[in-house]
Design a protein around this nucleic acid. Structure first.
Lengths: 227, 227
DNA sequence: GCAGAACTTTACACACTCTTTACGTTCGCT
DNA sequence: AGCGAACGTAAAGAGTGTGTAAAGTTCTGC
C-alpha cells in the first residue's frame, strides 16, 4: 500500500524486486541510475526510497546526501557488502535503515512496513475517510461498506475494487488498471478474476439496493455511477 | 531523448511509427526482420527496443530469447490480437513490457517513457478531458458523448473513431490512420469497416443534431467540422 | 496440518459488436 | 452525358466480451 522508489542499476534484480513488492500491494517506481533516481525522489512524494549504494556516476551516498538537503523521505540503503563502513556512513547521512545483500524479500518487506507503519497513523487521519455515492458508503479507516444503512461483508479484494471504482466515480476504470492497482499484476489475456470480483460485488450490493451502480463499459472497463 | 530500435516487418507501418516517434524527439533505427534486428540490437546500445512478434523467419520470441543471452536492453513487445500470449507470460523470456494492438501512438510513447524513466512533462490525460465542438461533447474519462445534452450510446470502436476525429478537428484524417489507430491494422483494399463505423456514428449523432459534423473528403478521409 | 475463506480458472450461455457482402448513390473526370 | 471509382448503408453472420455457476487452487488462522 506504499509508494516506493527503487534506485538500483541492475535491471534484472530491480525488476524482480519490483515484481515482488508489487505483489505485496506496493506501488513501485524504478530508477536505474543515481541522477534520475534523485530527480524522481525530489519530484514525487514517495513513502520509502530503496537506494542501492553501488550506482554508476552518482553513487548512493551522494544521492542520499543531496536528497537530504531538501527532503526527509525515508530511505533504506541496499548495500552489496554488510560492512560497518557502509552502515555507519549511510546512517550518518540520514538513511533510516540499511539491509545488506543478499537479503531475502520478506526481510526487506518487514523493514519497509516498519518504516511506513509509524507514518501511517498520521496519514490515515488526513485522507478522506468516507466516500458515498448512490447510497453506497465506503469507510476507508474502518474498511466497512454500507448500502442503504445495511452493512456488507466484503473480502479484501472486493473492498479494494469498490474503493478504486468509487474514488473514480463517474470515470471509466479499465480492467488493466484494476488488476494493477488491486492485484498488483498486469492483466493477462483470458484473466477473468476482475469480472468475478465485480460480479460478486454487484451481487452483494444488490441485496440492499436496486440501483445498478457498477456499470459495464464493454471493451473499456467499469464505472461507478454517481447519484 | 532516447535511442530506439524498431523491429517491424511491415515497412509502411514501421515508417509511420518511426515518423511519430521522431516527432517526439526520439532517435529511431529500423529493422525489418528478426535477423538484422537482433544484429543491430547487439551492435548498438539502444535505450529501448520495440519488437513485433510476427516476423518472417526469426520471430519476436526467438529474437528476444537470443538477445537476452547477452543483453539486458529493455524490450517492449508489440503483440497482435491472435498472438500466443501464453508464451510471453509462461516462458518469461524477459520482455519488460508489452503493448497489444490496437494501441495508439501516445500509449506507446507513455510506455517508452515509463521504461526510460523520463518524466513526461505533459500528462496526456490532462491535455483534454473533454473535447467539445459543434454541440458534440466527448468526455474521455467517462467515455461518454453528449449531443445537445443528450447522451449517445456508442460502441467502443465508434467512440474511438469519434475521439480521433474530434482530436483532429478541422483536419482530414485518412482511413488508413483511422484503421491503424482504432483497429490496429492496415487498411486492406475493399475494407469497408471504417465507412460503416462512420455511418453508424453519423446516424447516432443525427438523432439529436442537424449539423452534419462529420464530413467526407472523397479520396482523402473524414473531417470533424469545428462549429 | 487442517478447515474454511478467498481467490482464480474453467466452462458455457448470451448479448453485443464488428466485418463482410451486396447493391444503390454520389462524385469527379474526360 | 457517361463511366468508373469511391462512398452510404441495410442486413447477416462471424467474432468477441461479459455474467456467472462451479470447480480448482492458494492462502490463512488456529
Amino acid at each position: 500500500m506504499s509508494q516506493l522508489l527503487l534506485i538500483e542499476d541492475d535491471i534484472e534484480l530491480s525488476n524482480l524486486l519490483c515484481e515482488y513488492l508489487q505483489s505485496q500491494n506496493h506501488t513501485v517506481s524504478q530508477a536505474f541510475d543515481g541522477g534520475s533516481g534523485l530527480a524522481m525522489a525530489k519530484a514525487d512524494n514517495f513513502d520509502v526510497i530503496l537506494l542501492d549504494i553501488m550506482l554508476p556516476k552518482l553513487d548512493g551516498f551522494e544521492v542520499l546526501k543531496q536528497l537530504r538537503q531538501t527532503h526527509l523521505t525515508p530511505v533504506i540503503m541496499l548495500t552489496a557488502k554488510g560492512d560497518d563502513f557502509d552502515r555507519i556512513f549511510g546512517l550518518e547521512l540520514g538513511a533510516d535503515d540499511y539491509i545488506s545483500k543478499p537479503f531475502n524479500h520478506r526481510e526487506l518487506l518487514a523493514r519497509i512496513n516498519a518504516i511506513t507503519r509509524r507514518v501511517e497513523f498520521v496519514k490515515q487521519a488526513e485522507i478522506a475517510e468516507i466516500i458515498e455515492h448512490n447510497r453506497v458508503a465506503l469507510n476507508m479507516a474502518a474498511r466497512t461498506v454500507h448500502v442503504n444503512k445495511a452493512q456488507l461483508t466484503l473480502t479484501g479484494t472486493e473492498f479494494a475494487v469498490l474503493q478504486l471504482l468509487m474514488a473514480q466515480v463517474g470515470k471509466v476504470v479499465t480492467k488493466e488498471t484494476i488488476s494493477q492497482e488491486v492485484l498488483g499484476r498486469r492483466l493477462a489475456p483470458f484473466d477473468r478474476s476482475i469480472d468475478m470480483h465485480v460480479s460478486n460485488l454487484r451481487k452483494k450490493i444488490a441485496q440492499y439496493s436496486d440501483a445498478n451502480c457498477i456499470q459495464t463499459m464493454r471493451g473499456s472497463g467499469y464505472v461507478f455511477l454517481a447519484q
